[in-house]
Structure formats: structure tokens, C-alpha cells
Design a protein around this nucleic acid. Structure first.
Lengths: 221, 221
DNA sequence: CTATACTTTCAGCACACACTGAAAAGGAGC
DNA sequence: GCTCCTTTTCAGTGTGTGCTGAAAGTATAG
């Protein structure tokens, strides 16, 4: 019953090097324009090549934005596949261990950008990505704002309080260095407050609002 | 001559734990409101506490956004200090090695968010942070867009091309799975194209434009 | 209840990355 | 030329993070 997922496990295991170099090579052999020239098998290969390419790039990007590569890859896989996959599918496709797959899938569920799914009469659980890109990034933006921007803003405010008169005295509060520091803090605070608002609108508006916003932005360019 | 930077090296070396817990404790001992009650030395201590707090938080944030902690800390130090510091100052203040300081400072210079500075009649080099927060983030946004978003967008377009008729044939191009994949790719592309534009306006507009943009955003909330 | 199907946990391992410190290179002044 | 001061480089090391795989846990069916 769970063998079905192993059937797909061709020898694509470690072709990372190859397809990084020239993924378009995968389409070699197909005629240029006409009819149903490509046999079904070949089209499947091509689809697989596309998925691999997308998954790899998405993983790389994730890494530079502070997201675990494997998690990003799993998400990319579920997104691009556009249908629910079970743990074994993910393991086999990305060549990762059961433990890793389980933990990463759970983390993605916790973020809320993939969902668990049951199939009638089946015991195992399936996972699928949210399909709405805007919703996904809304969720991510909200979470990262909460976890990473809000604390910084709070800290800056705390720093300001620590340098106010009541805390350090009138004379000290007028010292050159103190004033300079407070200036720097103030401009950083202003900046982060504004960035926060942009995030906020990202979160609240999702697609409809953002598209409108971009129109306005473009006028100003 | 370079001893001056060591003179400041109090025993603040490893107070990380302590001030993480309760930084505001540093202001204990000052009276609440009146006059020049706090002796100058104490005010300096307070300033130091503020700087340490800011530096630590900035470093933490950097890490979660894919920026080396030490680099973020160095930048925070130069920004909050609001005056040029030399390599030894940085080493001593952050307790890092000469090699580390040298490499990180160079990297920050390469990014363009700090600048080298010579002082008349002095041999050693000083470094200072850009003072304009908006300019700094403009630079960062431009670079990250170029390095991390553009390649992904390019990949998505390539994926689309790999699934077009000329590449896989007419019949294959009509298959369910192929169509589903192309749909996903299309919505991701649309999203990234839009995000790119937002970044672009970030880059081009800096403060003046952004403030305007936020006003627009807020109306739409 | 046991057997089976599937998921989660986590100790131990492996690897990538950041950091150190000493040696080499650079360059200003004598 | 040599000396002195400073920066850069990089081999070696240490640490944190992510991954594995087997063992423990959970749930359903019989």
C-alpha cells in the first residue's frame, strides 16, 4: 500500500550537479513546434525537471532569508506539485530521512502555509500547500513581523527611555554623546515604525490591496 | 598610541547574560527627576548599557534575516556610536579577533553601509556608519533584490518556457498536471513581479517617497 | 486484547560556517 | 635600503545547526 510512492523513485537521486548547470537541456530531443511529438513519458520527465529546478531555487532563496533549506524545499515541492503528498512521497522525492520530513512538515503546518489532509478510507496523512500565494506571504509576513521586528522596535524604545532625563539626570541628558545617540535611535525608530506599517498593509490587504498600491507606487517612480 | 582603545576595556567582557535579563536595571541608583544628580561616570555607564542592548538586539535580528551576527553587531556599534571607530576599538568593544574584525569591516564596506575614513596625520583607518537610515536600507534592498529575488524570478520564467508547447508538444501541454503546474508558476510569478516593484520603489524613493507611499497604504487599510 | 500502519521524538553524528591568531603583505617614514 | 605600524589572509579549530535512523508513541482494525 505504501509501495506506490517508491515506484516513482527513479534514479534521480543525485542529479543536482547536472541539472543545476543546464536545466533547459532536459527539453533536448523534442521537435520544435508541431503536434503531439513528445511521448508522454518524456513530458513527465520534463515536468519533473521543472519541479526540480523550482524546488532547488526556492530552497536556495529560503536559506539566504533565514529559512532552513529543507523546509523551503518541502514547501516548494508541495506548492509546485499542486496536489497532496504524504510523508513518504516527500522523503523519496527530496531524499531526506523520515525524521527530517516529519519535523519539517510539522513546522510548516505550525506556520500555517501547508495543511494536513485526510483521504477517505486511508490511514496516512497527506499534506498540501495553500494555493493562494498572497495568503501564504501574508501569513509569513505577519509572523516575521511579530517575531523579529516588534522586539527590535521595543528595544529601541527602551533604549530611548534609558537616556531620558528621569533616568540619567538633566546635565547628563544634555551631553553631546547622549544627544547624538538619541538622534540615531530616533531615526531608526521612525524607519522601523514605517516599515512595520508597510508589513501591516501587506498582511491586511493581500492581493487586492497590494495591486492597487503598486499602481500608486509606479506613478511615483 | 593604540592603547587608548584598551583603556576603555572595562570588565564588561561577558555581561551578556545579565543585561539580557533586565537592562533597565542599569538606571537603578539615579534619582527620579531632579537636576544633575547622576555623576558623569554613571551617565557614561548608562550610555554603554544602551549601546550594548541595541547592539545585541540588532545582532539577533540580523541572524534571523540571514546576516552574520558579528557583522550586524559591528554595524550596530558604528551606527549607535555615531562617530568613527578604528579596528582596535571594534575588536575590544565586541571581543572579537583582529581577523574577524578586518573581514567583517571590509564586507560592510563592500555592501556600502559603512565607510572608511582617514584622519589627518594618523595612519590607522577609521570606519563610520552611514547616518541616513533610509539610504542604508535602500542599499541593502537593492542588493538583496539583485542577488536573491531576480534569480528566482528568472528561474520561474525559465520553468514556464520549459512547459510551453514548443518545448513539450501540443498534447503534453494540455495535460492536467502540466496545466496545474503552469498555473502555480504563473501566480508565483505575478506575486514576485509585484514584490519586486515594491522593492524598487523602496530603492528609488528612499525616505520622501516612502512616507508618501505609506500614506496611500494606510488609506487602503 | 494484539497486530498493523503510520507518526513523532531524540541521541548521536556530520557538516558547514564563523572565528582565531599568527604569518605575510602592504605601505609610510627614515 | 631598512624599520615600524597597520591591514589582510588563511590554515586550523570550534561550535551550532540540521539530519539521520532506530526506538517509542499513537491510532485504527480486527
Amino acid at each position: 500500500m505504501n509501495l506506490e510512492s517508491n515506484q516513482n523513485k527513479l534514479s534521480h537521486s543525485d542529479d543536482l550537479g547536472g541539472s543545476t548547470m543546464s536545466p533547459s537541456v532536459a527539453s533536448i530531443g523534442s521537435n520544435e513546434t508541431t503536434g503531439p511529438v513528445m511521448p508522454t513519458g518524456s513530458a513527465l520527465q520534463q515536468l519533473r525537471a521543472v519541479q526540480d529546478l523550482f524546488i532547488r531555487r526556492w530552497g536556495e532563496m529560503g536559506q539566504t532569508w533565514g529559512i532552513n533549506r529543507t523546509m523551503a524545499e518541502i514547501h516548494a515541492l508541495l506548492f509546485i506539485t499542486a496536489q497532496p503528498l504524504c510523508t513518504d512521497d516527500v522523503m523519496d522525492r527530496l531524499n531526506i530521512s523520515r525524521g527530517n520530513a516529519s519535523m519539517s512538515l510539522r513546522a510548516l503546518c505550525d506556520w500555517g502555509i501547508i495543511r494536513r489532509m485526510h483521504r477517505r478510507g486511508e490511514r496516512r496523512e497527506y499534506f498540501e500547500s495553500l494555493s493562494d500565494v498572497w495568503e501564504m506571504f501574508s501569513i509569513i509576513a505577519a509572523e516575521r513581523k511579530r517575531r523579529e521586528m516588534d522586539p527590535v522596535l521595543e528595544t529601541i524604545k527602551q533604549c530611548q527611555r534609558m537616556l531620558e532625563e528621569p533616568a540619567i539626570g538633566k546635565a547628563a541628558a544634555k551631553q553631546e554623546t547622549v544627544l547624538a545617540t538619541r538622534n540615531r535611535l530616533a531615526s531608526m525608530e521612525e524607519f522601523m515604525e514605517l516599515t512595520n506599517k508597510i508589513f501591516q498593509s501587506f498582511i491586511v490587504n493581500a492581493k487586492s490591496g497590494l495591486t492597487r498600491v503598486v499602481k500608486v507606487l509606479l506613478k511615483n517612480l
